[in-house]
Design a protein around this nucleic acid. Sequence first.
DNA 1: GGGCAATTTGCTTACGCATACTTTTGTATC
DNA 2: GATACAAAAGTATGCGTAAGCAAATTGCCC
Lengths: 144, 144
Amino acid sequence: MELNQNRQLITNWLTLSNIQMNISNELECVLQQHHQLALNEFYVLLYLSQAPEKKLKLQQLQNMVGLSQSAMSRLVSRFEAKGCGTLRRHICGDDRRAIYTSLTEEGEEKLKKAFVTFNETLKKAFSKELVQEELERIIHQINE
Amino acid sequence: MELNQNRQLITNWLTLSNIQMNISNELECVLQQHHQLALNEFYVLLYLSQAPEKKLKLQQLQNMVGLSQSAMSRLVSRFEAKGCGTLRRHICGDDRRAIYTSLTEEGEEKLKKAFVTFNETLKKAFSKELVQEELERIIHQINE
DNA sequence: GGGCAATTTGCTTACGCATACTTTTGTATC
DNA sequence: GATACAAAAGTATGCGTAAGCAAATTGCCC
């Protein structure tokens, strides 16, 4: 009993991980091909667009996207450098240690287009029967 | 309507990703601390232990774990080098291009211990109310 | 001035892609 | 059949990239 439950727990976890990984890879691939965007770059744009005044400090971004400090610092730097003006960094007025990252008009345009692709890909991925079945199974087994 | 659905879809996806990422990080951390095992290394041991004769070709492993061919090649190499004999690589008899990776006795012991930690961590993670609620919400919204 | 906070930078690591390498397989020719 | 040779299969390796950790840097606050 106990053993079987453990086995199911692991199986569920592996299934969940696989689903997540496959969809992530798919998103990464599609965004790169159609919009020259890495998945994390897309997330940055997305979170910025949802933020008041469309700007966020590095620290906030890093928590949302789930990257380390240094990784986010470099992601935004790279992105600003090669992102063709989708993004801008500027020093925070009232705390000059902090860096604001803000979305530009071009950035919003770019996000809007990428958003469509992102959504379509996601919808397609989640509508696969296998994924739905597996997710349901996981839920049921977690609950008992 | 359409817009709200899209928004929910994305929210669900972000939630799912976050859950997966947090648990993965937790597992990685705990396994590293208690057993000097990376998560992918643990997966390798796990899949090997489930395989007939406790051995798999590199290609099979790479598909199971979800790594690229080169990444798996190197993961196994590193692991064999510093894994203190938990793992062994040897050339396949009937196809000398292929490499078998097989689990040793020590490897099974190590896996057995790590397995306990892994399971406990997983159980704890999934039993968090938030995770359950969120997963349920995702399922329901996917189905309509 | 000392301690803390936000970011940057040096370093190492693991990854993916493309390529090289070795072995197997398929095919044409004799 | 035997031989030669091209294509394919299974791994390894060179190279570039993005990640995390820890230390350095810069600015804030008491």
